[in-house]
Amino acid sequence: MPVKILIADDHHVVAESLSMLLGAFEPFEVVGIVNNGWQVLNFIEKNTIDIILADLHMPLLNGNDMTVRIREQHPLIKVIILTMSEEAAHIREALQAGVCGYVMKSAERAELIRAIQTVASGENYFSEKIVRKLAEIPNLNNTNGKTAIDDIVPLTKRELEIMRLIAEDLSNQAIADRLHLSVTTVETHRRNLLKKVGVSSAVGLMRWALKHKLIDEI
């Protein structure tokens, strides 16, 4: 099945060019073009999407704020930011919002395709240039004093809620009832949590949460 892609960019020429470029690659299917984050949220309520390729600076709702909402409401949809911004602070904010990729608009076609394929396979993609920019942010917790991708684990408000309910030893069904979600959505959030923090079980997740002071001692 093709990877279904939604393009979000308020520059019409850029969006159309991206659509033509990606549409020519058989494993991809561009299912729509929208101009801002609010249009993205409306579009994904009515259509099946795998990946959103979004500009960072869009009117009404920017790429980062849009990503936060998508992570809360549609955790299976992945967001790749495609932007001109190389500012380390913007990159960090995007990571904290929960993007799965960050690529410069100046990137070659091959890199953009590689980024989409990587994210579609369940991994994250950040170009070497982005990693170098992120290292410009001081981090006193690292021995080298620099920030790395792994230093920023983007947990959404919903994921934090679910983590704390897991700490209370609630089942997926009980968590779903408490938060008025489907069991499938809870299971998806739970899998995302394990993957994000790099553990394989609820016990490992609780140890990680305690280490980072996200929950109280059990």
Score class of each variant (00 low, 15 high):
residue 107 A to S: 14
residue 74 H to Y: 15
residue 67 T to D: 00
residue 53 L to T: 04
residue 91 I to V: 11
residue 194 L to R: 12
residue 87 E to C: 01
residue 7 I to K: 11
residue 166 I to C: 01
residue 105 K to D: 00
residue 4 K to S: 12
residue 90 H to C: 09
residue 192 N to E: 12
residue 57 H to Y: 07
residue 167 A to R: 08
residue 118 T to N: 05
residue 182 S to I: 10
residue 113 I to R: 14
residue 115 A to F: 12
residue 87 E to I: 00
residue 107 A to D: 15
residue 172 N to M: 04
residue 32 G to D: 03
residue 52 I to A: 11
residue 128 E to L: 15
residue 177 D to F: 02
residue 106 S to Q: 12
residue 215 I to G: 03
residue 196 K to G: 00
residue 158 R to C: 03
residue 27 P to D: 00
residue 83 T to R: 14
residue 84 M to Q: 12
residue 23 G to F: 06
residue 178 R to S: 10
residue 83 T to F: 05
residue 99 V to Y: 02
residue 148 A to Y: 14
residue 102 Y to R: 09
residue 110 A to I: 04
residue 100 C to E: 05
residue 200 S to Q: 10
residue 156 T to Y: 05
residue 117 Q to A: 13
residue 67 T to C: 11
residue 30 V to P: 08
residue 116 I to M: 06
residue 201 S to T: 14
residue 92 R to T: 00
residue 28 F to K: 15
residue 101 G to A: 09
residue 90 H to G: 08
residue 171 S to R: 10
residue 74 H to M: 07
residue 95 L to N: 06
residue 174 A to S: 11
residue 4 K to C: 08
residue 184 T to V: 14
residue 78 K to I: 10
residue 216 D to C: 11
residue 86 E to V: 03
residue 174 A to I: 02
residue 208 W to N: 05
residue 72 E to G: 02
residue 42 N to E: 01
residue 193 L to R: 15
residue 159 E to H: 14
residue 161 E to H: 14
residue 134 L to W: 07
residue 163 M to Q: 08
residue 182 S to D: 08
residue 167 A to V: 07
residue 168 E to S: 02
residue 30 V to F: 06
residue 168 E to A: 01
residue 145 G to W: 13
residue 90 H to Q: 14
residue 197 V to I: 08
residue 177 D to C: 00
residue 36 N to P: 09
residue 137 I to M: 10
residue 210 L to C: 05
residue 78 K to M: 03
residue 19 S to W: 02
residue 163 M to H: 07
residue 185 T to M: 15
residue 61 L to H: 03
residue 130 I to M: 11
residue 85 S to A: 07
residue 158 R to I: 03
residue 185 T to N: 06
residue 121 S to K: 14
residue 45 E to W: 04
residue 77 I to N: 03
residue 76 L to D: 04
residue 85 S to Y: 08
residue 80 I to G: 05
residue 158 R to H: 03
residue 199 V to R: 14
residue 7 I to F: 08
residue 163 M to C: 10
residue 191 R to Q: 15
residue 16 E to C: 05
residue 179 L to S: 01
residue 114 R to F: 01
residue 163 M to W: 11
residue 13 V to H: 06
residue 113 I to N: 01
residue 171 S to W: 09
residue 181 L to D: 06
residue 217 E to R: 14
residue 137 I to H: 11
residue 59 P to H: 08
residue 210 L to Q: 13
residue 100 C to R: 09
residue 139 N to V: 04
residue 172 N to L: 05
residue 161 E to G: 07
residue 62 N to E: 10
residue 147 T to P: 03
residue 93 E to C: 07
residue 82 L to E: 03
residue 154 P to K: 13
residue 193 L to A: 03
